[in-house]
């Protein structure tokens, strides 16, 4: 279980996180909605320890991790997987080396065994047979799926998704949605996704939270989200330029 308590973070004069509090239960898929540039990715990077907050705490399984030393953070990260917005595959390596990197560096498994695991993970995301290609030879959707295979290669407890469907065609976006659901069901992974894609959110989420002006202003099931009376959430899910969220100025 992940508990986020009163997280504050600013970059210069720009207050990005303004007291974010959120609980994430084991095994659930939570989607954090928000406009572009509202600090969704920043929140994810705090959870995995890529950024440190100005104040506030994050507890993972009752343990406070915000004050962890770098060495302890590296250990903690082995329990996490992350899918980046642009996939962030290492372009100096083949697909196989990308997916197997964590295993090669952190385990004492033999080359053959790693090859086998990589093959299995690639099959899980529907990308069998691309082991020897380089990231530059893959399309956006293929990269996302290889990135996902890399994120789950070490059998993590938590997977973080940064805009998993952004920039994909609707069909490929749905393929990614299906994969996220499948991973939760087959590997019982706790998933945290940030997105502004409402369709995707309704499909994959057990719970939806909305980040607005540096705070979580709403959290509820997809059903509750659809029927909300909160004007900000309502404007966002309806995708309207008119409402309390300032748009043109």
């Amino acid at each position: 279980m992940i508990e986020i308590k009163e997280l504050f973070k600013n970059f210069g004069r720009n207050q990005v996180l303004n007291g974010v509090s959120l609980n994430i239960e084991k095994g659930e898929t939570i989607v954090i909605l928000g406009r572009s540039g509202c600090g969704k990715s920043v929140l994810l990077k705090h959870i995995i320890g890529l950024m440190r907050p100005d104040s506030g705490q994050i507890f993972i399984d009752e343990e406070e991790v915000t004050s962890y030393s770098n060495d302890k953070l590296y250990d903690l990260r082995k329990r996490f997987g992350m899918l980046f917005q642009g996939s962030a595959l290492f372009d100096s390596m083949t697909v196989e080396e990308n997916v197997g990197l964590g295993l090669t560096e952190h385990t004492h498994l033999g080359r053959e065994k790693i090859k086998e695991i990589v093959k299995e993970k690639l099959r899980l995301v529907g990308m069998s047979g691309v082991e020897n290609l380089r990231p530059a030879e893959l399309s956006g959707g293929m990269k996302k799926r290889v990135g996902l295979a890399r994120a789950i290669a070490m059998n993590p407890e938590f997977v973080l998704y940064d805009e998993p469907t952004t920039g994909l065609d609707p069909i490929m976006a749905d393929v990614i949605n299906e994969l996220i659901i499948r991973l939760r069901d087959t590997l019982s992974i706790t998933s945290i996704a940030v997105t502004h894609d409402i369709v995707s959110a309704y499909k994959i989420a057990d719970r939806i939270a909305m980040l607005y002006e540096g705070k979580i202003i709403f959290a509820g099931t997809p059903e509750e989200t659809k029927n909300t009376t909160d004007p900000v959430v309502k404007q966002f899910i309806e995708g309207s330029s008119e409402g309390p969220i300032p748009t043109l100025e």
Partner: peptide, 17 residues
């Protein structure tokens, strides 16, 4: 390039310094 395409972050999330 690795920094702006988040490959450096990716390395860190794989617990590699």
């Amino acid at each position: 390039t690795m920094k702006v395409t988040e490959q450096i972050d990716a390395l860190e999330t794989l617990a590699l310094d």
